[in-house]
């Protein structure tokens, strides 16, 4: 068993929920879970982390804006200091941006988007979907240090109080070769990759305004709005929402496919959802082959009725 270093992602002073999932996993499979926080307010973040049980927290406070090269330095310093043989992070745009560069520098193997991580015969063994979910691959990581990012929502974060030692790392921060200058929030929308509930629309939604009933239900259920490729290609909704082959692969608790026929590229991206509900006018649509509950009907008639009922209890 080995020390595991967990990169805890923060944005605008907030911990990303899925980073807590990585801490929970680290506690399960490692002997010590050490969290790395790169944030000007890292001490505040470290206090919040206590509830999730890391054995130690390393902080790096000197990096003003996100920069893949500066974050890489911080991570490398933390790996050296901790002697960790496993580096874990949640599968996010930030983690997959700078962590592979750090892994390559250390001549280390990395697996992204893992659904399962365990230690077997002293090696890190991971399971991940490949070919956009059409195949599941089991990989052993053979390098001295193993790098893994895990898919959000797969390992639920568990609270476990601890009183970790908090230590600030001395890192010489390079002049960034690439740096974030600003971020534009499209909205405060939850990303599909992190949502427990996804209400998703396809060709049957018929236009941008057709997504409104989907949005209403998603908001009520605290979920996100997803879309098929044809809805995105028709420019009814932005690509951020796309689920499937050229979009995101998701594993929510509930996926509601509205007016989505269910092409193989779409199914590959969402068939690992725990529950799938499909609403489609076409009784022969392939989506019904994988739906736990299928409604043959018009989404514009069924959804508002359903929303009404949900409102009554969520009132």
């Amino acid at each position: 068993m080995s020390n595991i270093l967990v990169f805890v992602e923060t944005r605008q002073g907030k911990i990303r929920k899925s980073s807590l999932e990585a801490i929970t996993l680290a506690k399960k499979i490692g002997s010590k879970a050490i969290a790395l926080v790169v944030d000007a307010d890292a001490d505040k973040i470290a206090t919040e982390l206590k509830e999730y049980g890391p054995d130690a927290v390393y902080t790096v406070k000197g990096i003003k804006n996100y920069s893949p090269d500066a974050y890489r330095e911080a991570l490398s310093a933390a790996i050296e200091k901790s002697g960790a043989k496993i580096v874990l992070a949640s599968q996010t745009a930030m983690a997959t941006d700078f962590i592979p560069a750090a892994a390559a520098k250390l001549n280390a193997g990395m697996v992204t988007d893992a659904l399962e991580v365990k230690i077997d015969g002293g090696k890190v063994v991971t399971r991940k979907p490949i070919y956009a979910g059409k195949v599941l691959a089991d990989y052993a990581i053979n390098s001295d240090i193993a790098f893994v990012t895990i898919r959000p929502n797969v390992y639920p974060a568990e609270s476990a109080a601890s009183s970790p030692a908090v230590e600030e790392l001395a890192v010489s921060i390079p002049v960034p070769k690439a740096e974030a200058k600003e971020t534009k929030s499209a909205s405060d929308e939850l990303d599909v990759s992190e949502a427990d509930v996804i209400i998703s629309g396809g060709r049957g939604v018929k236009g941008p305004e057709g997504f409104e009933p989907l949005k209403e239900l998603a908001t009520l259920l605290g979920g996100a709005v997803g879309a098929s490729r044809s809805a995105v290609d028709s420019e009814w909704i932005s690509h951020q929402h796309q689920v499937g082959q050229t979009g995101k692969t998701v594993s929510p608790v509930l996926y509601v496919a509205c007016g989505i026929s269910g092409k193989i590229q779409h199914l590959a991206g969402m068939s690992s959802s725990k529950y799938i509900i499909a609403i489609n006018k076409d009784a022969e649509a392939p989506i019904f082959d994988i739906a736990d509950f299928g409604i043959v009907g018009d989404l514009f008639q069924v959804l508002p009725e359903l929303t009404k009922k949900v409102k009554e209890v969520k009132g």
């Binding site: 892994a103 001549n107 280390a108 193997g109 990395m110 697996v111 063994v125 979907p129 490949i130 979910g133 059409k134 195949v135 599941l136 691959a137 089991d138 990989y139 052993a140 990581i141 053979n142 390098s143 068939s271 690992s272 799938i276 609403i279 009784a283 019904f288 082959d289 994988i290 739906a291 736990d292 509950f293 299928g294 409604i295 043959v296 009907g297 018009d298 008639q301 069924v302 009725e305």
Partner: peptide, 26 residues
């Protein structure tokens, strides 16, 4: 850095119940 241990196709998900009728009942 990594070695393939095995590949498999995910278990095919079976379709469940299906309902066809009035929107309110659905």
């Amino acid at each position: 850095g990594i070695e393939v241990l095995s590949l498999q196709n995910p278990a095919a998900k079976e379709g469940g119940k299906k309902f066809e009728g009035e929107p309110v009942d659905a």
